[in-house]
Design a protein around this nucleic acid. Structure first.
Lengths: 141, 141
DNA sequence: TATTGTTATACTCTATAACTATA
DNA sequence: TATAGTTATAGAGTATAACAATA
């Protein structure tokens, strides 16, 4: 039993994709790709991971994640260290330079969004804040 | 004069990127990429375009757009026709098969979102609807 | 045998540079 | 000359298949 599609669903789809695109345009390093930045955020926020764990987190294959990690390691943003207890595993961790890229990008993105929020009246600002909390509560990655 | 970054801005950033990712996972054709679908939506909604116009719309170079249009043309989703008045130009238009892909993908995405909305109480559903309208009003592409 | 990571190969999207055809 | 489109080439992300090292 499927319900009808409401205008709210179409509006929410269009609004979300448009805003997401604008948010992603705010980066501290223009040459950094979405795939690279996603890995950097994962290891910055959630600590060191194995290659397989990173691949599963982003829903890509291990060879694909391997290439992305290679580029981040070459740039000095992450480090690879062999796991002591299980020597098949490699632990990928954030480097200080990587953390700086993450923090600066988040500052830019949130700063841009803050400018958007500051231009709204109190009711609209409260509505967007409430909507964000509902989405974070209901939608899981 | 820059204001402080509020938790609302960070929440809105995280919620928007997470929801956008989930929306994009809903496609009628799994092999269709974001770049291809974006072009298809443009010509479906806004009519025929020249190659340069399509490239500018999506913020990519002409050679890059040319490759994407090539793949869509090979798949039978768009058509290329020489402009009669200025024969340097090529008009790219949606084909019926392309429109069907667009419509089916939008149906899937909106249907998935509708399921999300249906699971909420009236207040939360109204909040998301209001938030979408605020974003569509304030954020332009 | 199973798991972890890597390499080999191939396809798409991205770019810049250079070229063709037309205005 | 300038513009519109295309081709050539290269770098990065994606995948599957096959491999080495380790458990």
């Amino acid at each position: 039993m499927t319900s009808e599609i409401s205008p709210e669903a179409s509006d929410l789809r269009a609004a979300t994709l448009r805003l997401a695109r604008r948010i992603r345009q705010n980066r501290s390093i223009a040459s950094m790709t979405d795939a690279q930045f996603a890995v950097l955020v994962n290891v910055h926020l959630h600590g060191p991971h194995t290659l397989t764990a990173l691949a599963e987190r982003d829903g890509v294959t291990a060879p694909s994640m391997n290439r992305t990690v290679n580029s981040l390691e070459e740039a000095g943003y992450v480090t690879r260290v062999a796991d002591e207890t299980d020597r098949r595993k490699v632990i990928i961790a954030i480097a200080p330079e990587g953390s700086e890229v993450v923090l600066e990008t988040l500052r830019r993105r949130d700063g841009w969004l803050q400018g958007l929020l500051d231009a709204l009246d109190d009711d609209d600002r409260a509505t967007l804040g409430a909507a964000a909390r509902i989405i974070l509560r209901e939608v899981h990655r």
